[in-house]
């Protein structure tokens, strides 16, 4: 299964290599990884997609939290989340196919952002399956070049606070609960 994780980290030189080096070293399977500024100056936000089971994700979160510059990590897979990706696709066109391609773009609410005699560039924003399906459609016209940002994610409503909030990964529960009522992940300090 694929999990979406978000990590906040101090914007220090080499922090991306620390994180990516750890992920490689520990043999985690990362589908996509995207880094940008966050709402807080000096803190970068990374969205990444992990392929694996619950134990793998648990380890990714814990190992990630051990990287000194990482301030917080969240697994947002089971929260209502807006997942988006942006793709730029340069498609080969002829006089015959141009209109058809533009119609497809319109249906997908994609934009034509560049056009030349024998090609045009389509920009699409959406969930990955939407991007995938447009790419499938365009494939038979001949995709000359393509770039995708990878998944970015933001939880809906107020589910995620600011980076100063206590990480759900990192803080153990502090009140005792009667034995047996607790989930496996709580008992093992997991996520």
């Amino acid at each position: 299964m694929k999990y979406t994780l978000v990590a906040w980290m101090r914007d220090k030189p080499g922090v991306l290599s620390r994180v990516s080096g750890m992920l490689r070293r520990r043999n985690f399977n990362i589908d996509s990884l995207q880094v940008s500024h966050s709402e807080t100056p000096g803190i970068s936000r990374m969205t990444f997609v992990v392929d694996g089971d619950e134990r793998v994700v648990d380890q990714v979160l814990k190992q990630m939290q051990k990287v000194v510059d990482v301030t917080r990590v969240e697994n947002i897979s089971d929260q209502p989340t807006i997942l988006r990706e942006l793709a730029l696709i340069r498609v080969r066109t002829t006089a015959d196919t141009r209109r058809e391609i533009m119609q497809f773009a319109e249906i997908y609410r994609a934009q034509i952002v560049d056009i030349s005699a024998d090609s045009l560039v389509i920009q699409i924003v959406g969930a990955e399956d939407k991007v995938d399906s447009l790419i499938d459609l365009l494939d038979r016209f001949g995709i000359e070049e393509m770039v995708r940002t990878g998944r970015v994610a933001l939880a809906r409503g107020m589910r995620i606070g600011s980076h100063k909030a206590v990480s759900s990964v990192w803080k153990a529960r502090s009140t005792p609960v009667a034995n047996g009522n607790r989930s496996e992940r709580e008992k093992t300090g997991g996520v």
Partner: peptide, 21 residues
Amino acid sequence: DLPGFEPWPSYDLGSLLDAAQ
């Protein structure tokens, strides 16, 4: 000031009680 670096996590009393049991 190292946010996120938590060298001494405080333990969970519930887990300790479970362990003792």
